[in-house]
C-alpha cells in the first residue's frame, strides 16, 4: 500500500477491489474476453508469420502468378491488411458488449 501521492487515484475512491474481483460477473467477463482475445491473437500471429516464412523459405511457390504479373506473395501481403481491418472490426463489435458488462459490474462504485 505504498502508493505514492503522485500515483494515487482520486481520494474518494476506495472500493473493495478483492470483492469486486471475485464477483462472478467479473470472472465471467474475463472468461469471455479471454475466449475472444487468445484465439484471435493465435490466429493473427500464425497468419502473419506465415507470410515471412513462406516468402523466405518457399519463394518459388510464392512467385506463382495469379493475375497478370500479380503473384501469391503480393496477394498474401495485401490480405494481411484486410485481416487486420476485419479483426479490428470484430474486436470493436465484441468489446462494445464487454463495456456494458463492465459498467454493470462497477455500478455504485464510481
Amino acid at each position: 500500500m505504498s502508493q505514492s501521492p503522485l500515483d494515487a487515484p482520486s481520494p474518494a475512491l476506495n472500493p473493495d477491489w478483492e470483492k469486486l474481483e471475485e464477483k462472478p460477473e467479473f470472472r465471467a467477463l474475463l472468461v469471455r474476453k479471454r475466449q475472444f482475445i487468445v484465439p484471435s491473437l493465435v490466429f493473427f500471429m500464425l497468419f502473419y508469420l506465415a507470410l515471412p516464412i513462406l516468402v523466405g523459405y518457399w519463394p518459388d511457390l510464392m512467385k506463382t502468378k495469379v493475375w497478370g504479373e500479380v503473384n501469391i506473395a503480393y496477394v498474401f501481403a495485401l490480405s494481411q491488411f484486410l485481416m487486420a481491418w476485419i479483426m479490428a472490426y470484430l474486436y470493436v463489435r465484441v468489446a462494445a458488449k464487454w463495456d456494458k458488462s463492465a459498467a454493470a459490474i462497477i455500478k455504485g462504485h464510481e
Binding site: P9, L13, L20, L29, A102, I106
Partner: peptide
C-alpha cells in the same frame, strides 16, 4: 493484482 485487474478491465478509478 485484484485491484489492477479490476481497474484494467473495467476502467474503475
Amino acid at each position: 493484482f485484484a485491484e489492477l485487474r479490476v481497474r484494467a478491465h473495467t476502467g474503475l478509478g
